[in-house]
Each structure stands twice: as C-alpha cells, then as structure tokens.
Design a protein around this nucleic acid. Structure first.
Lengths: 228, 228
DNA sequence: TTACAATATGACCGTTTAGTCACGAAACAT
DNA sequence: ATGTTTCGTGACTAAACGGTCATATTGTAA
C-alpha cells in the first residue's frame, strides 16, 4: 500500500502522479518501467516519490487497483444485465464491457492486458489476487454457473474453456476497435450508443456465434444436444 | 543479419552465444533483455559481441529466425498430415504441434509468445514479417481455405475468428501442459507418443469440440447448417 | 620470418537506473 | 514565538546499461 503521505496529497497532485504512472506502465512492461521517467513526468522530486511509495512494486500494485476501480466505475455507469440473464447474453455483455473499457481507458486496458500476460510476475504476497475481472478463474466459475443454468453443454471442459475465453477476452478488444474504425470514436465520445449501433452489434453477433455454435458447417458432435 | 564473423565461429562457440541469447530473451521482454547478461553467460567479451552482431535488434531477429527454424525441424520430424485433410483435423494437428514445441523447446516457445504479444515492436523493415506460423494472418488464410473446402460455416467472420484462434493458439499450450502433469514429461522425453495417449487426446478432443461446435447446449443459430 | 588481415578483449564512455539522505520549507499545536 | 511533526527536495551512490575503441592475439599466406 502507498504511504499515508500519498493520500494526504491534494487531489490534483495525487492525480498527476497517478497519471504519470499510468502513462509509464502502459508504455513499458513492469520490469522496464522507470521511476525516473514517472517522477519527471509528474514533475516531482525523486525523494518525494519515496515519501509516497515504498518502491516500484508498491506503485504498480496501486495502479492495478486503480484499473480495477475504474472498470467498476464503468460497470456502475452502465445498464447491468440481470443475473438471471442467459449465460451467452451475459458473456456478450462482458466482452462489450471490455471493448468499452478499451475505448474509454486505452492505457488502463493495456496495463490490465500486460498484467494478465506477464502472469505470475508481480503477484506475490497478494492473497486476493488470481481472481480479477477477466481472470481465468472468474471465467471458470462463470462457465460452471452456465452449465448449472442449462445454457452450456454438459460436456464442456470448464477449465480449458475458461483458459480459451480469457485469452480471447484479453486479445479481442483491440482488434474489434480497429475493425470498427471511425465508429469506435463515435462510441467512445458518447455520440453513438454501442447497444444500438447495428454495425457494431453485428460484430458482436459474429463473435458470440463462434462461441455458441463453433465454426463447423456440419457439427458432428454436439453430444448432449442430440442425445437429449 | 549477423556479421560474417559470427558464422565463421566454431559451432560450439556459436551455439553457446545463441543459447545465452535464448536464455535472456526467454526471461525478459525485448526492451529489458540485457546484452551484458548475454555476454556474461556466453563468456565472451563485450567487444566480441559487437563483432558478431551490429546491435541488440540484430541479435533478436537472429533468435526469432532460430525459433522458426527449430519449429520447422520439429514439423519435419513429425508425420505431416496431408493437405487434403479435414480443416478441423488440421487445426487439431497445429495445436498439437504447438504443445509439442512448448514441451521440447519451452524457452523458444516463450520467445515466440512474447514476440506475438508485443506485436509491432521489433518488426520494422522486415517485409517477410506478419506471416509467421501462428500469426493471425496465417490463420485467416487457413480459415478461408476451410470455407472453400466446405468444412466451415459460410457465415464465419474469418478475420475475427483468426484473431480469436491465434489468441488461443498462443495461450493454450502452457495451460494444456500444466494440465497434463506428469504425462507431459513422458511425452517430452519420447517415452510416450502423444498421438496414442488416450488422456491427452481426450484433452484435444474437448478443445476441438469447443472450436467446432461451440459451447451452447442448444445452439439456435447454426445458420447455414439448418438452412442448407 | 615477415606481413597482413581477421578476431578477441576489457577498459572506457556517456547515460540511465532504483534508491538514499541530509537539509530546508512548511504546517500545526502549544 | 516556540517546538514538533510532516512534507518537499535534488544532489548523491553504486550499479547497470548499450555501445566504442585502441590494443592484443591469432591465423594465414608469402
């Protein structure tokens, strides 16, 4: 945790430091991120930094906490689907959320992605770790619920499916946004609502079709569907 | 390209340098990889290194070339499926190949993964780039062929599907190997043939089922199958 | 043996790094 | 006004970085 001194800071200054840190951690992987660059960008003295944070890892964990916080804020600002929603409708909503987060906070999204891909690098001694939004564990529980709700085929290997979906969840949003082109900007600035844009929803349709029904023209397996 | 001096080296010494570089690039992302660490591990002088390579990027590109080369060697040592194979059987073979590569050359596999994730960092002025095994572009062409062969549903968005599959292709092998546990070691050392190990093939079955038929218990879409 | 080219070397350069610390400027209570 | 705590600061350390270069060693041909 950052030292109390950091939280005693006036909001403007604290935000300045946080923004500088976000810039740096979005630009470089954790190992290469430079404290010197951060204090230069935040226009504070090197010594001041160490009055706020005990070391680089301390700052990094704080930034990761910020990422989660901003994502929760985004969720709060959205129409949250009811829990009783169809599993795939909820999964679609989650991917849509990831895309929105990528559009509104590209740097934070990049930090989250880097943290996911670097896997067990800076995640020591943090017991609440391993279960963040988008994590493999979260998707696993989600899929188990899907089977219990009779939405998913019973033969689905939830562990492996969770690994595959989390890979997609972290890799797809930047691609989708590039694919959306100009439209992405209209949605990001709020002039277009993503939920009512037919072109974007077509993209999500295609994405969900792949997850729901796979890619085969003539699926031979579909085990419990045909034996139901 | 490395300088001629490097290729004039005795095999043992050249290999030593390459192994040291592989160790380093597998341990750290490109930006953080240290020349000093490499020359220390290879037990050569700093000056010697710069008689072999013009700079860090030069070495890195050479290592990436080594990765592709070793992968091709692995392919050559395997029973290559016929081109007329079913699309999904071929895709299954590709994933199996990725798993084998991860088992036999974990460091090289890690370098390949890092290169894929860092995306357009060290890929300048290399025209043959953007189309390496496992790249999104390669999967896209592969999927188009799949549609032409009538194996894939015609509505599949090949661009997006390629993005999803390449994400899985790079993320899944380490998970599968961890999942295989002790069995992975038996296969890696050759005492068990992956193609005839029922437990492993069960895993691949589940993986391919997900790609082929998706996850829904009762797929509503399956557009051109039901309208065929 | 001589001459010349190819290769090997580590001290060195300028820069950057994470982290420290003595000191000065506030802020605050008494 | 005085004492005390908190905060801000930039010079500083020791180490590491990528890269250079003059020099030393080796190999080869004459």
């Amino acid at each position: 945790m950052p030292l109390e001194t950091f939280f005693n800071l006036p909001d403007a200054k604290r935000t300045l430091v946080e923004e500088a840190a976000i810039d740096e951690f979005a630009a470089k992987p954790y190992q290469c991120a430079s404290i010197s660059a951060i204090v230069a960008r935040a226009k504070i003295a090197k010594g001041s930094f160490y009055q706020y944070f005990s070391d680089k890892k301390d700052l990094y964990r704080h930034v990761l906490r910020l990422v989660q916080q901003r994502k929760k804020e985004l969720v709060s600002s959205l129409t949250v689907p009811s829990i009783s929603l169809d599993t795939f409708a909820y999964l679609r909503w989650m991917i849509q959320l990831a895309v929105l987060f990528e559009m509104r906070h590209p740097k934070l999204a990049r930090i989250e992605r880097l943290a996911f891909l670097e896997q067990p690098l800076p995640t020591d001694d943090d017991p609440e770790n391993g279960y963040t939004p988008g994590s493999t564990n979260q998707f696993k529980d989600f899929l188990i619920q899907g089977i219990l709700h009779d939405d998913l085929a019973t033969w689905v290997d939830t562990d492996m499916a969770a690994c595959m979906i989390s890979a997609i969840y972290h890799q797809l949003p930047p691609y989708l946004i590039e694919r959306m082109g100009e439209k992405a900007r209209s949605i990001a600035d709020g002039s277009v609502d993503i939920a009512y844009d037919p072109l974007t929803q077509d993209l999500f349709d295609n994405c969900m079709d792949l997850l729901e029904a796979g890619m085969a023209r003539d699926p031979q397996i579909r085990k419990d569907f045909f034996s139901k």
